[in-house]
Amino acid sequence: MAIRFFEEETPFKLSKRNTHKKWIGEIAKSEGKQISELVFIFCSDEYLHEINLSYLNHDTYTDIITFDHTEKENTLEGEIYISIERVIENATIVGETFERELLRVMSHGVLHLSGYKDKTDQEANLMRKKEEEAIKLFEGVQ
């Protein structure tokens, strides 16, 4: 199992790397998946906006983009790009702490790789439920 974290163009540094790695492994396990390789890239709005334009042809800012590179069934392999600026802003908008919102967004990427979608209201509601379950898992691995 390989989980790596990179901070690009942002002063943000993930402080509990080992705890986060264990937690991400627990999310995968709860979904019946094994992690082959996951790479989390924490970046600026502009960095993620450029990726959104270049690879998805979307001229919008977003908090997360997930690229699925999974080749084998029941494994997770991919890249998860997270805009720290969006996470900070979203946390403020919804009245949440930065740390909890970051957990939500990180779990969101893992859940996408696990097969969950969020395009319809029904899919989005299930995704939110799974994110809450994942956040509770984090509390258990600290």
Rank of each mutant, 00 (worst) to 15 (best):
A91C: 05
A91Y: 05
T92D: 13
T92W: 02
T92A: 10
I93L: 06
I93S: 00
I93H: 07
V94G: 00
V94I: 13
G95E: 04
G95F: 01
G95S: 02
E96D: 14
E96F: 00
T97M: 02
T97W: 04
F98N: 07
F98K: 09
F98W: 06
E99G: 08
E99Y: 08
E99V: 02
E99C: 01
E99T: 11
R100L: 05
R100N: 15
R100F: 00
R100S: 12
R100I: 10
E101C: 12
E101L: 02
L102A: 06
L102P: 15
R104K: 15
V105H: 07
V105D: 03
V105S: 02
V105K: 10
V105P: 13
V105L: 02
M106K: 10
M106C: 08
M106W: 04
M106A: 04
S107C: 06
H108M: 04
H108V: 03
H108W: 08
G109M: 00
G109A: 05
V110E: 08
V110K: 08
V110D: 08
L111M: 08
L111G: 14
L111W: 10
L111F: 09
H112P: 12
H112C: 07
H112R: 12
L113H: 11
L113R: 08
L113A: 06
L113Q: 10
G115W: 01
G115H: 08
Y116F: 15
K117V: 00
D118Y: 08
D118Q: 12
D118F: 01
K119R: 13
K119W: 04
T120N: 07
T120F: 01
T120D: 03
D121Q: 09
Q122W: 05
Q122R: 14
E123I: 05
E123K: 08
E123N: 09
N125I: 05
N125M: 10
N125S: 13
M127V: 11
R128N: 13
R128Q: 13
R128T: 06
R128D: 14
K130N: 07
K130L: 11
K130Q: 13
K130C: 02
E131T: 06
E131R: 14
E131P: 15
E131W: 05
E132P: 11
E132K: 14
E132S: 14
E132H: 10
E132T: 12
E132W: 03
E133S: 11
E133M: 10
A134W: 03
A134E: 07
A134K: 06
A134R: 07
A134N: 09
A134G: 10
I135S: 00
K136T: 07
K136S: 11
L137W: 01
L137M: 12
F138K: 12
F138C: 00
E139L: 01
E139C: 00
V141Y: 02
V141W: 00
